[in-house]
């Protein structure tokens, strides 16, 4: 272990984890209302980032139509992503109602490919480095910490803000699910569609709503990721770190997704801090090893729902 690096990596890991958690939330949201595991979520994240980039008029060609400030671009992207979510639900998922769950899940895989193709047509395949960032990469918060590398912990402003936004979004969603009427309708629908119908819940409206919400959450996550890493088609692969976060936290738990994200971030950062990094990509593998261990001990994840079986 490279001890002087550890305090820095601990904090960075937690902050990064918050963003991963927010992306994981979007998948949990859909799973909670319809039991569909949305493999296209990463591509919705990517679309959110590209839309923001487009609204901000950051095209390199110089022929930008809109030149909105970042906050307005985000609003625009959120609005479009809500429509995108609704459209996906209407065109792709509603016709599949009543079909086996597996076919619906495979359909989301196809959807991912479609979204990727459409994005490359609409925005081009080259990575964009000119995402409108609110802070320059040089803006760091220096916290003195004796014993750490350089006797201080350096935090990028962008990372701190991203973590704050992710946390706020997660808390809002948790409040929404547990305290509002619509949240209760969503939780009820996730358990049993037919029974939900029998008590007068409009199930298709609940699905549409959860996809719209997931679109918004994805966009938010996409913007935060884009600020940290820039926009490219590869952004969609962030779900690969979100998957272990979801399974760690438990598929049905919003709080668990966030915590899972933080655990994933931490495990990645700490493996990076370990001195002998002989295994290539060890930081990417670490969360999955952690996941394996947790799943052996708690198959439903840390906060997932235990299957209720009465004899």
């Amino acid at each position: 272990m490279n001890w002087p690096l550890v305090p820095q990596q601990l904090i960075t890991g937690i902050l990064n984890g918050g963003v991963i958690g927010l992306i994981a939330l979007g998948i949990v949201l859909i799973y909670k209302s319809s039991e569909v595991f949305n493999f296209a979520h990463g591509h919705m994240v990517m679309w959110g980032a590209f839309l923001t980039w487009w609204f901000a008029g950051a095209a390199e060609t110089g022929s930008e139509l809109l030149n909105l400030p970042l906050w307005a671009a985000v609003m625009g992207a959120l609005a479009v992503s809500v429509l995108l979510g609704l459209l996906i639900e209407r065109m792709a998922l509603r016709p599949m109602t009543g079909q086996p769950l597996l076919s619906i899940i495979l359909m989301t895989l196809g959807l991912a490919q479609l979204l990727e193709g459409l994005a490359s047509i609409a925005f081009g395949v080259e990575p964009k480095s000119n995402f409108p960032a609110p802070f320059s990469p040089g803006d760091v918060l220096v916290i003195p910490f004796p014993g750490a590398f350089g006797d201080a912990i350096r935090l990028k402003y962008t990372l701190v803000v991203a973590f704050g936004v992710a946390l706020l979004g997660a808390l809002l969603l948790i409040w929404f699910f547990n305290r509002t009427r619509t949240g209760l309708a969503m939780r009820a629908t996730s358990e049993n569609h037919e029974v939900a119908q029998s008590v007068g819940i409009n199930v298709s409206r609940v699905f549409a709503l959860s996809w719209a919400l997931a679109g918004m959450v994805a966009t938010l996550g996409g913007v935060l990721m884009a600020i940290l890493t820039g926009v490219s088609l590869n952004l969609a692969t962030v779900v690969l770190v979100a998957f272990p976060a979801i399974l760690l936290g438990g598929l049905e738990s919003l709080g668990g997704a966030v915590l899972g994200g933080v655990l994933v971030g931490l495990s990645q950062a700490l493996v990076q801090a370990a001195r002998p990094i002989e295994v290539r990509n060890s930081a990417e593998i670490a969360p999955y090893i952690l996941l394996l261990i947790v799943l052996i001990i708690r198959p439903e994840g840390l906060f997932g729902q235990k299957r209720i079986e009465r004899v």
Binding site: R187, E191, E194, V195, I308
Partner: peptide, 8 residues
């Protein structure tokens, strides 16, 4: 078969 929302 008294189907309720088990986890609620």
């Amino acid at each position: 078969g008294r189907p309720l929302f088990q986890h609620l």
